[in-house]
């Protein structure tokens, strides 16, 4: 079982490495969206500091959303997905491997770049570890929930917009606790409760989302 997991993980990471231009585009999108906000709301440092957690989190969420359609599209087009579904391995297992590979190739770079961008927005330096931690806990949830939406909209016309409509309402709790954690840390009230809730959400999503996603993939490829 573990060998299937690792094989799918390795394969997807290799594919992501070969198509690293896509990953860089996602990252560039994240950076540019964050940089747009000072132009929109003005470069007043106090104001930027106040909106920094929300801006960083919304930008990370949009970057994740934009890359979600890639999660299954390639495998669907070349028939790999059907092979995987026909195999005797539990589908939830390799779905989890694919989501993990997706997160490592798109979520992790965003998490790594976020502290640098936070400095552009003048976020308090003491809140940077919490920002990284909240993104590291929250973006996998986005990937897991988004995988269900990506599986349901597989191969549909206008699937991208539909995917956004389906998953964005579901992302709201993650956004609230993620941005809330950074804000709470910056204002000195402590982020432990937020981070615990994010961790709980991640555990719940890990337990439920792969099964829902596997069921959705079966429906979409039937």
């Amino acid at each position: 079982m573990l060998s299937t997991f690792l094989a799918v993980l390795r394969r997807d990471l290799l594919l992501a490495w070969r198509g690293r231009a896509d990953v860089l585009v996602t990252l560039a999108f994240f950076v540019i969206v964050v940089c747009l906000f000072p132009f929109g709301v003005g470069a007043e440092p106090n104001q930027l500091r106040a909106i920094a957690p929300g801006v960083l989190w919304v930008a990370a969420l949009l970057a994740c959303l934009l890359s979600l359609h890639r999660l299954f599209a390639q495998d669907h087009a070349d028939g790999t997905l059907e092979q995987l579904l026909l195999s005797s391995e539990p589908a939830a297992l390799w779905v989890a491997a694919k989501v993990l590979a997706f997160w490592l190739s798109t979520g992790l770079p965003v998490v790594a770049v976020a502290p640098g961008l936070a400095l552009l927005l003048d976020l308090e330096q003491g809140a940077l570890p919490v920002l990284v931690l909240s993104l590291a806990l929250g973006t996998p949830i986005l990937g897991l929930l988004g995988a269900v939406g990506a599986a349901l909209t597989l191969g549909l016309r206008g699937g991208g917009m539909l995917l956004a409509l389906l998953v964005l309402p579901l992302f709201v709790p993650v956004l609230i606790f993620g941005a809330g954690a950074v804000e709470a840390e910056a204002s000195g009230t402590g982020a432990a409760a937020h981070l615990l809730l994010l961790g709980g959400g991640l555990a719940g999503a890990l337990a439920l989302a792969p099964w829902a996603c596997a069921a959705a993939l079966r429906i979409s490829t039937d």
Binding site: V148, G149, L152, L170, P173, G201, L208, A212
Partner: peptide, 15 residues
């Protein structure tokens, strides 16, 4: 599937 995923999420969203 999306109705069920939504129903699971409604209490979480409210909270």
């Amino acid at each position: 599937i999306i109705a069920l995923v939504g129903a699971v999420n409604v209490p979480i969203i409210y909270f």
